[in-house]
Design a protein around this nucleic acid. Structure first.
Length: 873
RNA sequence: GCCCGAAUGGCGGAACUGGUAGACGCGCCGGACUCAAAAUCCGGUUCUGGCAACAGAGUGUGGGUUCGAUUCCCUCUUCGGGCACCA
């Protein structure tokens, strides 16, 4: 081996070795346990960012570790290639999205290969390949047949100037990002997937996902939002009947039917039929409805906006008392959730309370706590009582507790035909239509005579033309006659092809299945899926905890019910990785636009009074003082990204990988640190030198055996403790930082080890072998060379994970911590197999312990075997 | 606004099941090597007081449970993720 470590040469050699053996090509092999290690595939944005490097390094460490543990490992990679950024790039550069996307894929593939990931590149595909999205369309048609896919109207952001539907991201403070025009809501027909049909199963099956982080399961459960409650109908009063021209009832859903006698008003969404009818004869109300129509469609905006309302001037009747209740139109009631109407109970609901105070609506208390003082909520400083309690002022239900009252009121309503118990979900059906070009075409043909006609299977895939260039106004497909002109498959008449494309979440809802059989052109999936799936480990950003992961679970269940899969959950174990952060520096010129500076260009300077300021050099040898805004996600807009490519060029892929794995545990955020990178590089060089000096001193007998000196015993204990810890940290806890720390301690111990005798050198050999093998999944390139130098018979990639020698771990004495009143006062050494009485006696005999006991008798002595004694006085 | 997390030395983090707070790394300080610098190696490094031995304080805030709390419970603060058309 070379005396000095040259990352470029070492990495080239290892990568060439793996490539020449096709080391990562995965084959189905029923005789071996399989391990499908899946990282979320990237959007091909142009260049890899540090989040990608982190994600794929975590996956690679696990894949390589499991390979060493004897598993048949599949680690694939592909491209989530449809989406908005390609269209934006197309508008900016006048390049077709397909060309931009495929160039990016080629570039990013090269970047990934330079990082040395153990990926089976033979299975690679992109979601914009017709051979892939063919099956999106095929399954969509099956869903249509089963009523899972259906068409109805939905609300979108409409830019009236560009005549274009905008994504939420393209709406900035209520205005179109390109035109600056105020955005309107518009209802258009769209396709939906009936995910709510699976709500119960998606919720219940979370219990079986023990390999998922608890917080993700909680988030999904809350997102699905199952609530048990009651539908209640409030019959129209004569004024409402007149406005609507029909009899009927206003239906609401509530989980608090026990507060029914406290209803003092009703609130409906601006889009509700009653609101629209009432607005016809009421210009003021019509203006308010119009104002609501202009508001945002985003839930966060709706929930934080000022709660406004206006009386509709019509009434409904209380189902028990027959009292006339005013109907209000309110901007906080969502048409898309429940019935688009809610009953207002100010005394027992925070939001209704606020609304009632503001609009001078009556407040009626009908529930009180079972005990304790209670003050009726009548003013802003007395909060509404939103808990369960005992009913008052509730006719025949007075005196009941809330829970029995819920059932009793529901039963009474059912008898009157004005209500029934029902389970309601917060989850809404999944709208998949996008009025955009760069996506998977929805395989439907609209015929004037036959209506919506599915494209026959034999005509699939409906291929997306790749030569169009969007210009920001409308969907190019809708302007391309070559695309939309077609014949009706049923009657043969001239017809119009659907020009909406699918949400890109559809593409990512099943790509992990396709990796098992990317070459099957006859079927969506085949029997190989049953070998590889479910994925044993899925790794990706926490930001995907809800939408992507829920859609993928749903899609899997649909395919299972269709008979294409034998399992209902796609990912057995999930690791949600934290984000990569860096410092944000900016300069705000007076009256100008804020500029951001990369932390790499910023340096600190101390002023004469000692305060530190951040500055950047400007072109004319001057400096500019910049403001530190704290830490934030690496992003283009804040200019604080670090390019992985430069890092690899300067330090090598192993350093990049080691730093990422060492800086923090995978689930936590990772703060970028140039010094930390240097530290990782330094450690690799120290390891390199330790092996260089050891092997340079001549051949060594492999395998330490026989009796050991105490120095040898100590090094062996450190080595096998590090191995045991790293095995647990990587395999079970997936905390790589502490596994690396254990090997660092081991290398420190090797450095202190002075025994140059033949048995001593065999012990050092064993320690270095353990260090190299344990780090193999993390720094595989340098490991490849070092393993060869240590005399490995096989290449490192073919080595199994080393075994812990229990004898090396054995300890004859234990250090016991002694506390007095919970404070550390001393240590005592006792034989490893001491009983409690011995430990207790040793502790009480300790000089410092006696000092702190101050002659007082112990009131209590707590002994934790092998660890600690606490003397309570 | 709602749901979910997080907060520990100068910095990143460790302490896994309630049992020695600060492993490991960075930075800094001192030393060795060098004409010198870089690199490398050795030692020190939570804070306060003390020459030291040692003592006291200390895990975002305030409270609680416990022999014992970074860990469990409640409160608040700040930061981050998600909120259905960014992916």
């Amino acid at each position: 081996m070379q005396e000095s470590y040259d990352p470029a040469a070492v990495e080239r050699a290892a990568q060439q070795y793996w490539q020449s053996r096709r080391a990562f090509a995965a084959r189905e092999d029923p005789t071996r346990p399989k391990f499908y290690c899946l990282s979320m595939f990237p959007y091909p944005s142009g260049r890899l960012h540090m989040g990608h490097v982190r994600n794929y390094t975590i996956g690679d460490v696990l894949a390589r570790y499991m390979r060493m543990q004897g598993h048949n490992v599949l680690q694939p990679m592909g491209w989530d290639a449809f989406g908005l950024p390609a269209e934006n790039a197309a508008i900016a550069n006048n390049v077709p999205p397909a060309q931009w996307t495929r160039q990016n894929i080629a570039y990013m593939r090269g970047q990934m290969q330079a990082l040395g990931f153990a990926i089976d590149w033979e299975r690679e595909f992109a979601t914009c390949d017709a051979a892939y999205y063919h099956w999106n369309q095929w399954l969509f048609l099956r869903m249509l047949e089963q009523g899972i896919a259906y068409r109805r109207t939905g609300v979108v952001n409409w830019d009236p100037v560009d005549q274009t539907v905008l994504a939420n991201e393209q709406v900035i403070e209520g205005r179109g990002w390109r035109t600056g025009a105020p955005i309107e809501k518009r209802e258009i027909p769209m396709y939906y997937l009936n995910i709510t049909r699976y709500a119960d199963e998606l919720l219940a099956a979370l219990d079986g996902l023990g390999g998922w982080p608890e917080r993700v399961r909680v988030m999904q459960a809350n997102w699905i939002g199952r609530s048990e409650g009651c539908d209640i109908s409030f019959p129209y009063a004569p004024d409402t009947r007149a406005a609507l021209g029909a009899a009927g009832a206003l239906k609401v859903f509530t989980t608090r039917a026990d507060t029914l006698f406290g209803v003092t008003f009703m609130a409906v969404a601006a889009e509700h039929p009653i609101a629209l009818a009432a607005a016809r004869g009421n210009p003021q109300l019509a203006a308010f409805v119009e104002e609501c129509r202009r508001g945002s469609v985003m839930e966060a905006d709706v929930a934080t906006q000022e709660k406004k309302g206006m009386p509709a001037g019509v009434h409904v009747l209380h189902p028990f008392t027959g009292e006339q209740l005013p109907v209000w139109v309110a901007n906080y009631v969502l048409m898309g959730y429940g019935e688009g109407a809610v009953m207002g109970v100010p005394a027992h609901d925070e939001r209704d309370f606020e609304f009632a105070l503001k609009n001078a609506l009556p407040i009626a208390t009908v529930v009180r706590p079972e005990s304790g003082v209670y003050q009726e909520a009548v003013a802003p400083w007395i909060p509404a009582y939103a808990e369960y309690g005992v009913l008052v002022n509730s006719a025949e239900f007075t005196g009941l507790e809330s829970r029995p009252a819920l059932a009793a009121i529901a039963a009474a309503l059912a008898q009157k035909g004005l209500g029934a118990e029902r389970i309601q979900y917060r989850l809404r059906d999944w709208g998949i239509s996008r009025q955009r070009y760069w996506g998977c075409p929805i395989p439907i043909i609209h015929c004037a005579k036959c209506g919506e006609v599915p494209v026959p299977d034999k005509d699939l895939p409906v291929v997306l033309p790749e030569d169009l260039v969007p210009d920001g106004s409308g969907n190019p497909l809708a302007k391309s006659a070559a695309f939309y002109q077609c014949q009706c498959p049923q009657c043969g008449a001239a017809a119009r092809r659907e020009t909406d494309t699918m949400d890109t979440f559809v593409d990512s809802s099943w790509y992990f299945l396709r990796f098992a059989c990317p070459d099957d052109n006859q079927h969506m999936v085949d029997a190989r899926v049953d070998y590889w799936l479910p994925a044993d480990q899925y790794i990706g950003g926490i930001e995907h905890a809800i939408l992507h992961l829920l859609y993928a679970r749903f899609w899997t269940k649909v395919m299972r019910d269709f008979g294409a899969l034998k399992f209902g959950e796609p990912f057995s174990n999930l690791l949600t990785q934290g984000m990569v952060l860096n410092h944000i520096y900016s300069y705000q010129p007076p009256g100008g636009r804020k500029r951001y500076f990369n932390p790499a260009d910023v340096y600190e300077r101390r002023l004469e009074d000692g305060t530190a300021v951040s500055e950047v050099a400007t072109g004319d040898a001057g400096t500019l003082r910049v403001e530190h805004e704290g830490l934030g996600k690496m992003s283009k807009s804040e200019g604080n990204g670090v390019d992985p490519e430069g890092l690899v060029a300067r330090f090598g892929a192993d350093t990049a990988r080691l730093f990422m794995m060492f800086a923090s545990p995978p689930e936590q955020t990772l703060e970028w640190s140039d010094e930390g990178v240097q530290g990782a590089s330094r450690f690799i060089r120290r390891l390199w030198h330790a092996v260089y000096e050891h092997t340079g001193a001549g051949a060594v007998a492999r395998g330490a055996a026989g009796s050991f000196t105490s120095e040898q015993t100590d090094l062996r204990r450190v080595a096998h403790q590090a191995l045991a810890k790293a095995t647990d940290d990587i395999g079970r806890r997936k905390n790589f930082n502490t596994a690396i720390a254990a090997v660092m301690e081991l290398l420190n111990a090797v450095g202190r080890f002075t025994d140059a005798s033949a048995p001593g050198r065999a012990v050092r050999q064993e320690a270095l072998e353990i260090a190299v093998l344990v780090l193999a999944p993390i720094i595989p390139h340098v490991g490849h060379t070092l393993w060869e130098a240590l005399g490995g018979e096989r290449a490192l990639i073919d080595e199994p994970w080393p075994r812990v020698d229990p004898q090396a771990l054995a300890q004859h004495t234990h250090q016991i911590v002694v506390q007095v009143n919970g404070k550390l006062r001393g240590h005592v050494s006792v034989p490893a197999n001491s009983d409690e009485a011995t430990v207790r006696a040793a502790a009480l005999a300790d000089e410092r312990v006696r000092k702190f006991m101050d002659g007082k008798p112990p009131r209590r002595v707590i002994v934790v075997p092998g660890k600690l004694v606490n003397v309570v006085i």
